[in-house]
């Protein structure tokens, strides 16, 4: 029945458009509010009148936004690099090298990945306190040098999908394990490595709990996620400025997403659909 089909087509589109509208409303209001003057935001107005660009300059004047962004970049960037150094090789071993405890090893990776980090929080904090590094980025960054369970898991899944023949061929050519990893596996798993990096980067960029626990005592070491949460404290009703900072905190992530969207989607598709 063509009419019924057309009807359901229209209904589905209408539903989709309505949903899209609902999903966009928060973004629109946040951005609009970021252009309102301080008094206007308290009146419940919906449209900025007049447009106040000054909230954005004010945001940079009242908060060390540059510093916060730099800290986030330091935290997320360094963590990602360290994660790659530690997790790519072991993921290769787990995927392609047969050894006695490989089953146990993978089991441990899964459990470590799934357990909430809070279950190890108290002793780890005590250790960092013992070495007197609470207040610095070390407790947040250094663990990644020793592997991230989730990244290992993700990378292993990628390596699994690379046919064994490539490895055999490389071994014939006289490559050792490192040679196989660096010359064959890494180039072939680029999308996977990119995806693992992006996820690690975003996770650190968005992290609130870690900085709250370890660097909140030192405002010089606040990343943007923590800074934003604290910023409302000193300016709790200057909603225009707060929304400007909120918009600014979101912008880099969205920009990265749009530039890396292909890698992102390709990475997800590769991990997921093939299998």
């Amino acid at each position: 029945m063509p009419t019924k089909r057309a009807l359901s087509y229209v209904a589905e589109h209408a539903l989709l458009l309505a949903l899209a509208f609902v999903f966009l409303v928060p973004v629109v209001f946040v951005v609009l509010t970021s252009f309102m003057g301080g008094n206007q935001t308290l009146t419940g107005a919906l449209w900025p009148n007049p447009f106040e660009w000054s909230n954005y300059t004010k945001a940079f004047d009242t908060a060390p936004l540059g510093r916060w962004f730099a800290n986030s970049l330091l935290y997320a960037g360094t963590s990602t690099l360290l994660m790659l150094v530690s997790s790519v090789p072991v993921a290769y071993v787990l995927a392609k090298v047969r050894f006695r405890f490989s089953g146990v090893a993978f089991f441990v990776v899964i459990v470590a990945m799934l357990l909430p980090p809070q279950v190890t929080q108290v002793p780890l904090y005590a250790v960092w306190a013992h070495f007197r590094v609470v207040g610095t980025f070390w407790p947040l960054i250094l663990p990644h040098l020793f592997g991230s369970a989730f990244s290992i898991f993700l990378l292993r899944q990628f390596f699994l999908s690379i046919p064994k023949e490539y490895i055999d061929a490389a071994r014939m050519d006289g490559n050792g394990e490192w040679g196989i990893l660096l010359r064959i596996m890494v180039p072939m798993a680029k999308p996977g490595i990119a995806a693992a990096s992006i996820f690690m980067f975003f996770q650190c960029w968005n992290d609130y709990y870690g900085p709250l626990l370890y660097t909140s005592e030192n405002p010089d070491n606040w990343p943007i996620a923590y800074g934003l949460a604290s910023f409302h404290g000193s300016h709790s009703t200057d909603w225009g400025v707060i929304m400007a900072v909120t918009t600014l905190a979101t912008l880099p992530v969205v920009v990265v997403f749009f530039f890396a969207q292909r890698t992102f989607v390709q990475g997800i598709t590769l991990t997921g659909v093939k299998g």
Partner: peptide, 19 residues
């Protein structure tokens, strides 16, 4: 001077061997 630190935070810092 480390200004604007909440009391609980100061206690945390001094307990965890901070400066």
């Amino acid at each position: 001077v480390h200004a604007g630190q909440q009391d609980t935070k100061i206690t945390q810092v001094v307990s965890s061997g901070g400066d």
